[in-house]
């Protein structure tokens, strides 16, 4: 029995109050369980998309290797100065709501511009690298989404467990205790009335 509940007066009013509270807590627990199921469903749906991670990583490594080979073949001076012709992309981090959970998401504000690079080999290698990076960004966003949803799931689980194993049993105990006290008091009152009437 929680310390707060231990000092409640044993009365019909308290009984009614505790019954209402127990009902509310049980409803809250159900709502949280429903939300938990919904989040689990969502996480599983995203997990399917995360299967693309291996493929995205493979593509990224391939594109990065191609660029490295190009850097090696053309030389550091050439590579560095050609790279300076590319306007780099801008990526912003915004907070979006996924199932009511705030999730940071990387968004491409503008893509890199390689229009100043005339060499077709450089362009092709850079385009492929950017495509691979874009896919990696999408996958990273999904990973972050899963992470945040799982954090929320953990939190909900903690709350549900606490309600299930702590608050509800404690309320039920108090309720039972007060019910017994109220019944005892009623019987006592009844006996007292009977004695007074017969006396």
């Amino acid at each position: 029995m929680s310390s707060q509940l231990a000092f409640l007066p044993a009365s019909r009013g308290t009984l009614l109050l505790l019954r209402r509270r127990l009902q509310l807590v049980k409803r809250g627990k159900e709502v949280l369980q429903m939300r938990r199921d919904q989040l689990v469903k969502e996480v599983f749906a995203i997990m399917d998309e995360l299967k693309k991670l291996a493929e995205a990583e493979r593509k990224y490594l391939e594109a990065a290797r191609r660029v490295t080979q190009l850097r090696m073949s053309r030389g550091e001076h050439d590579f560095e100065s050609i790279a300076s012709l590319v306007r780099p992309p801008e990526i912003d981090i915004v907070i979006v709501s996924r199932q009511g959970v705030p999730v940071p998401e990387a968004r491409i504000v503008y893509e890199p511009d390689y229009s100043r690079v005339a060499d077709p080999e450089y362009r092709e290698a850079l385009e492929k690298l950017w495509e691979a990076i874009k896919t990696m960004i999408i996958v990273a966003n999904k990973e972050m989404e899963v992470e945040k949803l799982c954090e929320q799931l953990q939190y909900i689980n903690r709350v549900v467990n606490s309600l299930e194993r702590n608050l509800i049993p404690s309320l039920e105990d108090t309720l039972r205790h007060i019910e017994e006290r109220v019944t005892e008091e009623e019987i006592e009152e009844f006996v007292r009335m009977k004695v007074v009437r017969e006396g």
């Binding site: 001076h77 560095e80 100065s81 050609i82 300076s84 012709l85 590319v86 780099p88 100043r116």
Partner: peptide, 21 residues
């Protein structure tokens, strides 16, 4: 001449610290 090209790309491009021969 390669250095001139490097500086040209630097001027036209993103103006990072150029790496010259």
């Amino acid at each position: 001449i390669e250095n001139v090209k490097i500086q040209l790309r630097n001027i036209v491009g993103e103006r990072r610290k150029p790496f010259f021969y």
